[in-house]
Amino acid sequence: MARESLVSRLNKKVFGYLASRFPPTPWADLTRRTVETVQRQVPRSHAEKYELKTIWYWYPLYCLGGISFVAFILLTITGILLGFYYIPDGTIQFTQTGDVTSRAYESMNFIMNDVPFGFMIRGLHHWGAHIMIAAVFLHMMRVYFTGAYKKPRELNWLLGAVLLIITLAFGYSGYVLPANDLSRAAATIGINMAKASPGPPWLGQLLTMLIFGEPDPTGFYIIRMYWLHVFILPMVGVLLMILHMALVWIQGVGEPH
């Protein structure tokens, strides 16, 4: 009897070790049964189930939410790669020749000029953000004009509205990070808007210190925006996105018919 090859034995060893500890069979069976019997297809919409004629030329618009999700995944990947090089320190410093700079700005230049394909990764992150926001806007318009926010999908519309704000906040906190002139101008406007928030005076102060960490844009706002951009918004956003898509799965696609 020929002896088994080394690879095959290693395979059996490793997968046998894993399978005896974390048996996948029941889960695989369950999944296969679900896929093959109950839900062999993507959930059928009402129109599909009853073979109603719908406005078929609107169907391409139904991929916009998916496009924004794909863009979000791309942004996550490229964002992680950028995070290896970016330094969230906006403190104003001076170069040997007396030019104004900061460590955040220097790290941006490092990414753009020295990191192999760094400009490509940042380009993907930049344009991916634009495409995601455009897709989210168009997705909202599609949902609005097809009346998909109506009963029973009100909660999902509200989740989507919060996700829209989160997406815009992602965009804003993202273009503040490079510590360039646009960043400073945007931070100035943001700080002034936060200061002037309607309500008692202490509320504006509190919001300013909470969001930007300083009443004038000297450079500390970068670290606050960074934490917002890489931790708080992704955490809340991913959570809400999962809920958003789970509700679409449960409630079905809202088609006009």
Partner: peptide, 14 residues
């Protein structure tokens, strides 16, 4: 990203 690379621009300057 290849043909319309976003440039960083000048540094923030108070």
């Amino acid at each position: 990203s290849a043909f319309a690379t976003p440039l960083v621009g000048p540094s923030a300057n108070p």
